[in-house]
């Protein structure tokens, strides 16, 4: 993860902060903030029996993003010879948190939440959790040091990238498989949601990507970011903010349903659709 953020920073160092980057950041943050509202509406239709807190928590996961899914998509595009804007990695960090803010608002309106929702610790967890700081830090370091500094650390971060990603995906596969056993307890409507929501989000994200002038590869990455669901940062925030929500539902949906769906079917599908239409 550090490697790809570093590259993103180096790209901004070389190309400067252009309109394309600013537009992608704004659209990314908007998508993260607005997709939970679509998720809540979709869960209401597909699984009306879901309680307010769990519905809101699930929605937060689908507004936020999965860094591993993004990395897999970026590598898939690279291997397929599809170029994309390197600055897209900057959008990743910005899409992690607006969804949580949106859901805190949704939850407050629904009358659920924790007395800790207003605690400073929650906002520290949302805005300054380890993954956000590490990833933003890598981006800023890449931006500052540029290609010369990147060359100095390339052997450490760049060469092992594919191997580490492979091991990481295998480990994630094991964790997801462990979670699949719990999927039996999830209402079928929510499982359907875990498969339909990424398709809708990818469609919206991809279309907006094209609308703001991203390349085919860039639009596919925005589609993947929109389609992916968080399973690291958001569960922590939801345990603090929405203790009434069932983690057995939201982590399982995100990790055991949507993550493998995106990696195996979603990413190639989004690229195929983009290449067919554009």
């Amino acid at each position: 993860m550090f490697a790809i953020r570093l590259k993103g920073g180096v790209a901004v160092n070389q190309q400067g902060v252009g309109t394309g980057l600013v537009l992608a950041l704004v659209v990314g943050a908007l998508l993260s903030f607005l997709l939970p509202f679509l998720a809540v509406a979709l869960i209401r239709v597909l699984s009306p029996g879901t309680d307010v807190a769990t519905r809101a928590a699930v929605a937060a996961h689908y507004g936020s993003i999965s860094v591993v899914t993004f990395l897999t998509a970026a590598e898939f595009l690279r291997l397929s010879g599809v170029p994309f804007e390197r600055f897209m990695v900057a959008v990743v960090a910005l899409m992690e948190t607006p969804a949580i803010i949106a859901v805190l608002w949704i939850a407050r309106r629904g009358g659920v939440g924790s007395n800790l929702s207003t605690d400073g610790g929650l906002y520290r967890e949302i805005l300054l959790n380890g993954s956000v700081v590490l990833l933003l830090g890598a981006f800023v370091i890449g931006w500052i040091v540029g290609p010369i500094g990147e060359g100095d650390v390339k052997a450490f971060f760049d060469a092992p990238f594919k191997g580490v990603l492979t091991l990481f995906l295998l480990d994630m596969g094991l964790l997801a498989a462990g979670r699949i056993r719990q999927a039996g307890g999830i209402p079928p409507g929510l499982i359907v949601f875990g498969l339909v929501m990424p398709l809708l989000s990818a469609g919206i994200g991809g279309a907006l990507g094209v609308a703001i002038g991203l390349s085919t590869g860039g639009a596919v990455l925005l589609a993947v970011l929109s389609a992916s669901a968080s399973y690291i940062a958001v569960p922590a925030a939801m345990r603090l903010a929405l203790p009434q929500a069932n983690p057995g539902v939201y982590v399982t949906l995100s990790l055991a349903v949507t993550f493998p769906f995106n990696v195996v079917i979603g990413i190639p599908l989004y690229l195929w659709v983009a290449e067919t239409l554009l």
């Binding site: 994630m172 964790l175 979670r179 399973y231 690291i232 940062a233 569960p235 922590a236 345990r239 983690p247 982590v251 990790l255």
Partner: peptide, 8 residues
């Protein structure tokens, strides 16, 4: 403990 996130 070795679940996906230490928060859980």
């Amino acid at each position: 403990r070795d679940d996906i996130t230490p928060a859980l």
